[in-house]
Amino acid sequence: MPLLELRNIYKAFGGLQAISNVSLTVNEGEIVSVIGPNGAGKSTLFNLITGVYKPDRGDIIFQGERINGLTPDQVTKKGIARTFQNLRLFTHLSVLDNILIPQHHRLKSSWLAAVLRTPRYVREEEEMKKIALEKLSFFGPRLMSFRLHQPVYVLSYANRRRTEMARAMATGAKLLLLDEPSAGMNPKETKEITQIIRRFRDEGGYTIVLVEHKMNLVGEISDRVVVLDYGVKIAEGDYKDVVNDPQVIEAYLGRREE
């Protein structure tokens, strides 16, 4: 059974058909890249999966369960987490708080128990802190010591990206949707991110769908590449096959005038 399955998804904004008839299957343990020129509908696809938009037609099935029509927080509870193209961190909160908030939905204690600090709540809170540190350790010790208590706005851009990825992991999701994880990073940091995404799968057991513009990153880690253009899936398959597909080349570079 595939982990995530999109069946003939359609989405229009007014007269603009942003996504038409896109089907996609993601198996457990895969890294799937979604690429395409600007405005191809990549981010819309992410927003459809995470419940920000509702598809006009079609089904989204996650672990055998229909999830279209759910709100974003319900989708997250089912086990899909995302990062954002232009960071959406809780800027004035500390790094630790940023990683604790996504675990809030798993809290079983009521708010009154939280105020009274019942033993169960204290235990849950400790568990949350442990998970937070565990997720941050994916990125080495740089966020672990004093930066843990610093507000996010003092962090460097790369550290913010890392924090956002740790935050997505902390939701307890099985499927991570990474929207341009290497945007704004220098080659060295991009390389590190590439390794980290691979470690997400190998060590963390996550399945990953990513939208990315840096082709060397895509080529290096993707098991499968999906190409969108004007909301239509024009190619799918191995990186090498896809980039040599004439349709894909046309979408990116245009047609040569004969």
Partner: peptide, 25 residues
């Protein structure tokens, strides 16, 4: 007590970024 609990953090997350807070469950 409320502010420094998980619920207080959730409130502040909503203040910082509603969309992100919702996406984080």
């Amino acid at each position: 007590r409320l502010k420094f609990s998980s619920y207080g953090r959730a409130f502040e997350g909503i203040r910082e970024d509603e969309i992100a807070a919702e996406a984080m469950g």
